[in-house]
Design a protein around this nucleic acid. Structure first.
Lengths: 287, 287
DNA sequence: ACGGTCCATCAGTGATCCTGATGGAGCAGG
DNA sequence: CCTGCTCCATCAGGATCACTGATGGACCGT
């Protein structure tokens, strides 16, 4: 199970074509065919049905493994090389949209920062593969409970702050006048499902133990302004950290009383941070 | 970064010797030397100091990655092969010592079961690599919260039961008469640190947010009888699921009132279970 | 000084991995 | 039915790679 073979396998499966994969990878079609044949012989089972090119059951299973595997491989390489390479100029920060609270923004150095806003799952990957020097992720968690992150590589996490959670209601909503809300009261409401922007409904369902939380609209983007505008227009409720939820025009942000969860931010890095990254880690570290 | 090179690298690092690694892997010393040289050239940095053979900083970092990486690779292979191979005769079950509650024991088929009791981290690895068909892990968690398991591979988990948590006190302990205990009251007590037997103190500290929980004795074994005997003899307190803690001679098992955690068991499997494994999954599945 | 051990290096060879060419299968159009 | 096209499998050949076995230099204990 050579990683090269694995890589050509996933591109063949993705493009559903041997020849297209060969073009993309810079091989001849012959080489790709041999790669797949070698993999199938090694594993003792067909992985792809030909004509049309579709993964078999075993092939599907291999696809589940191959992505994380290749990611980890890239992460290992990047992590080791990072130690050896010269300290980088500048600082690349990968962050989820809701993780950029005032405290982080204040601590950023005045120049030389590249900021890439990514979906929640992509941040650890970016840090692991060295695409970013540091990562900022956030999410709902019980107080002083670490976030559950996909472990693509051994990353170090520091808590950088916990913020209150607010329910974002359109201004005219019947519950808008309440001083606080319990999540159980809102199980029957319609929610915006925005997995990439930090609001996966599945997480809410898990937190409250099951039912409810129907989705009114699924938002696959990442932009928070759009998300709050959707909430203001009555397309569904949203659960957001206080600094993001407060002051959105046309909405009311009501604190969440129950369950006792907080919006927690964590700073990720691979090896020991160096240069500007080290300064930022030091500045943001929980006192 | 060929996995073969990675494999010889980890064995060289483990044995601190090129020649010993060559013997173990069935290579010549020359080949091992070339493997390491190839890796170092590929990554552009020395990984090992020679004479004595000790990993450099970059090498240490690579070691952190290599283990999980090779594990995942083996897991991917096993998972795919499992789908293709003939359904296994019998059933191999990997379990932590505390995970074998009465419900599980009752559901086991009357014959043909191989049971391997392993440390908590080794169970997912055993299931992923196909050493076991099914895995049973357990641990403390908030009610209806999934366990945090090392994700060596995409495994499927089913909850199989939640049990009350008891503090195991020696019979003469001053707190033995209490109807219930709060963990915060016990932060200053001495605990048995038994990471392999399912009682890692680090987990307790995390659950209560920090301090306390000094360790009186560290128990590296896996055997529960020894652990309860240690607790009875006053070598420290232990936190155990009710079915294990109740009825241990010379001890009193007091329910834990605060924090509200349960002892949760989960059943793990890789691909879709087949044969006897499928029956057991069906029988244990939470109704 | 001298074996002994250990790792690095080198030459040689068998295996491997590519490319380019060829062939068969399926498909659309005539 | 035949033809032209696309797609994948297979084959032959050549460059490259990965091993072995031999040799050499560095260090260690005697």
């Amino acid at each position: 199970m050579d990683p090269h073979l694995l890589r050509t396998y996933v591109t063949v499966a993705r493009l559903a074509s041997f020849s297209a994969a060969a073009r993309e990878l810079g091989y001849t079609q012959s080489a790709v065919s041999q790669h797949i044949a070698a993999l199938e012989q090694d594993l003792g089972t067909p992985l792809l049905a030909r004509r049309p090119v579709v993964p078999t059951a075993a092939g599907e299973r291999l696809l589940d493994h191959a992505g994380p595997l290749l990611l980890r491989l890239a992460a290992a390489r990047a992590d080791v090389v990072r130690l050896a390479a010269a300290p980088v100029q500048g600082l690349t920060l990968a962050a989820t949209p809701t993780s950029l609270g005032p405290r982080v923004l204040a601590a950023l150095p005045p120049a030389g920062v590249t900021l890439r806003v990514l979906a929640r799952d992509e941040v650890p990957a970016a840090v692991a593969t060295g695409t970013a020097d540091l990562g900022l992720v956030d999410g709902l968690a019980a107080p002083s409970d670490p976030l559950r992150l996909p472990d693509v590589a051994p990353l170090t996490a520091h808590a950088v702050g916990e913020q209150q959670v607010r329910v974002l209601l359109p201004a005219g909503h019947p519950l808008a006048g309440r001083p606080a809300l319990r999540l159980a009261d809102l199980a029957d409401a319609r929610w915006i499902d925005a997995p990439d922007a930090g609001l996966p409904l599945a997480q809410l369902r898990a937190a409250t133990g099951g039912g409810g939380f129907r989705s009114a609209l699924r938002y696959d983007g990442i932009d928070l302004h759009t998300l709050t505008a959707l909430a203001a227009a009555g397309h569904g409720l949203a659960l957001l950290p206080a600094p993001v939820a407060d002051g959105v025009p046309g909405t009311v942000a009501v604190p969440l009383a129950e369950p006792r969860v907080v919006h927690r931010g964590e700073l990720l890095h691979g090896g020991p941070p160096r240069g500007a990254a080290a300064d930022l880690v030091e500045a943001l570290r929980q006192p």
